[in-house]
Amino acid sequence: METAKHQSDEDILINGLKSGDQAAFHEAVRLYTPGMLAVARFYLDPSSAEETVQDCWVTVIDAIQKFEGRSGLKTWLHRIVANRAKNHLRKTKREVSSDFSETLDPELADRFAHNGRWATPPGLKSNESAQALMENGALSDCLDQHLAALPETQRSALMLYEAHQHKSDDVCNILDVSASNLRVLLHRARQRIFLMVETFQETGEC
């Protein structure tokens, strides 16, 4: 019965959306907008991305009637955003550029000696849990800063895969990248976060 209960929360929300209930829309907007922005920003500059997400929500009012629930609401919304963002991109003829050739972050790469061993090994291991660490507001702010500084493509991949827990296939589909390129984006982004946490733990500064 666990899954039945789990599904019904989303079902109630979907029914609310289908009947044009404003409170349901408010809830859905709060819940899904951050992920939709992550998708849009993969393709577009921040202000076009916001505009695209807003426009998508307006189209959802009608489109939700045709939603059959095969993919789950989140994935469905993310696909709508991706399609709209791609159309926008086509009109402005901008291309998403990304370097998939190097899997090592340059800063991390510098820490190996010529023989391929660590020259500057990783700092001490932290025994605190992620949850405990996140209660450190300074670390949380620092993480925000570093996430914001990531290339859009890396950040989107990281957000969809890690934060919104999409499966790889879905992320590839939504972001139009191959499975191997997704692996590169994820690994590059994670290395940045790793380096940031290390500096923070060693110096107490961001």
Partner: peptide, 30 residues
């Protein structure tokens, strides 16, 4: 170990803050 910890941290962090102003704008358009 530390890379794993960063991934967990990222997941724990991503109870992301919502941009209230944007939510408000979307609500009004809806």
């Amino acid at each position: 170990g530390n890379l794993r910890a960063s991934i967990d941290l990222m997941k724990a962090h991503s109870s992301q803050q919502v941009d209230e102003e944007l939510v408000h704008r979307i609500d009004s358009r809806i």
